Simulated assay, not measured.
Amino acid sequence: MFVDYHTHHERCGHAVGTLEEYIEAALAKGLKEIGLSDHQPLIHVPHREGSAMLMEQLPGYVEEALALQQKYRGQIDVKVGLEGDWVEGYGEQVRGLLAQYPFDYVIGSVHFLGEWDHTNSAELSNWDGRDVYETYAEYYRQVQLAAQSGLFDIIGHLDVIKRFGVKPERSVDELLEQTVLAVRDAGVCVEVNASGLRYPCAEQFPSVRVMEMMKFHEIPLTVGSDAHQPGFVAEGFATVYELLKQVGYTHVHGFTGRKRYEIEI
C-alpha cells in the first residue's frame, strides 16, 4: 500500500525521465499512488537555470500530468502536484500561481536562503564563513513561516538543512521543537523524505527524533522518495515505512483536490 508523493522529471533541468516513466516505475514497484510534484518555476531568482521548470513550461506540465492521470485510472492513482518554494516576501505571488491550476497537493519546501540554494551540492562553498547554528535557526524560521503561510498541503524534507552533513556543535532541539509546534498549529502534513538516505547525512528527512515528536503531537505524515530518475521511485521505502511503524504511525496521508485522507500502512 506504499505511496510516493515526491517525484521530479526532465522539465526541472536536474532530473531525467518523462512523467510517464515515473508512473511506470511506480506500477512496477507495486505502489498504490504516485505523486507528480516537479519544482515550481522560480520567482525570486528566475534566472537560475537547471533548478526548476521554466514558467512557460508549467501549463504543459499540468496538462500532461492530468492526461496521464486519466490514462492510468484503474491501474494506479496518479496525483498531480507541485513542489513549491517558500521564500519570504514572495508568498502572494506563489499563491496566485498555484490558484491557476487544479493541483491535488502542493509541497512547500525551503531550498533557498536568499539566493543560496543550500540543497545544491554545487553551492556548498556558501557554508564557508557562516555561523552554522544561526544558519540552521534561519532555515527553521523559514520552515515555520512556510507552514503558517496556508500555501502548502505538505512540508517537504523538513530538516533538509542537514543534507550535506554540515551541523552546528550546539543542540538544535529547541529549533526543532519550535518548528514541530508551528507545523502542528498550522495543521499541515509533513513528508518523510527517503532521499536523505542517499546523501552524506545518511538519514531520512526528518530524523527519527523529529518523527517521534510529530507522533506525540499527532501531526499527519506522507512519504516521498524525491526521485530525480525513475529508478529512484520508492527508493528507501522499506526503511522509511518500517521507521514509521516503529514510531507508532499506522497511517500515512494522500491528497485529492487538496483534501487530505488517510491510507493505512
Rank of each mutant, 00 (worst) to 15 (best):
G165S: 03
G165Q: 00
E169T: 11
E169V: 12
E169Y: 08
R170C: 00
R170N: 09
S171V: 02
V172H: 00
V172Q: 00
E174A: 07
E174D: 12
E177G: 09
Q178T: 12
Q178M: 11
T179Q: 07
V180W: 00
V180N: 00
V180Q: 00
L181Y: 09
V183E: 06
R184I: 05
R184L: 13
R184A: 14
D185V: 03
D185Q: 15
C189H: 04
C189N: 11
V190P: 03
V192H: 09
V192T: 06
N193V: 03
A194V: 03
A194M: 01
S195K: 11
S195M: 02
S195L: 00
G196W: 09
G196S: 12
L197N: 02
L197F: 10
L197Q: 11
C201S: 13
A202N: 14
E203Y: 02
P206A: 06
S207F: 02
R209T: 09
E212Q: 13
M214C: 10
H217A: 09
E218H: 13
E218S: 15
E218C: 10
I219Y: 10
L221T: 10
V223D: 11
V223M: 04
G224M: 04
S225G: 12
H228V: 02
H228E: 01
P230C: 09
F232Y: 11
V233F: 10
F237C: 05
A238M: 05
T239V: 15
V240C: 14
Y241C: 05
L243V: 14
L244F: 03
L244W: 04
K245A: 15
K245Q: 15
Y249F: 15
Y249G: 08
T250V: 06
H251V: 02
V252Y: 07
G254F: 08
G254C: 03
F255M: 06
F255K: 07
